[in-house]
């Protein structure tokens, strides 16, 4: 535990909320579009996977 002070609710949820928004965006655009939109959909839904890999590498202690 790095700090003694508490994170605010916003600090706790800002990254998960951004990932959730990207995921929902990806789920919807892949449904509404074809071709390039499918790639964009997979990539934005994949933000969750990218964030996991990043956390496992960079926030490991």
């Amino acid at each position: 535990m790095k700090t003694g002070h508490h994170l605010t609710l916003w600090q706790v949820f800002s990254v998960p909320a951004a990932i959730a928004a990207l995921s929902l965006f990806g789920l919807v655009v892949a449904l509404l579009g074809d071709g390039l939109w499918n790639g964009i959909g997979a990539l934005t839904l994949g933000a969750s996977v990218i964030a996991t890999v990043w956390a496992l590498a960079a926030r490991r202690r």
């Binding site: 508490h6 994170l7 609710l9 706790v12 990254v15 956390a55 490991r60 202690r61």
Partner: peptide, 17 residues
């Protein structure tokens, strides 16, 4: 429940040790 558990931990912290 995520909020009370993560109050002191920045997002993504994995205390692997």
């Amino acid at each position: 429940l995520y909020a009370p558990f993560m109050r002191r931990l920045p997002f993504g912290t994995v205390r692997a040790s």
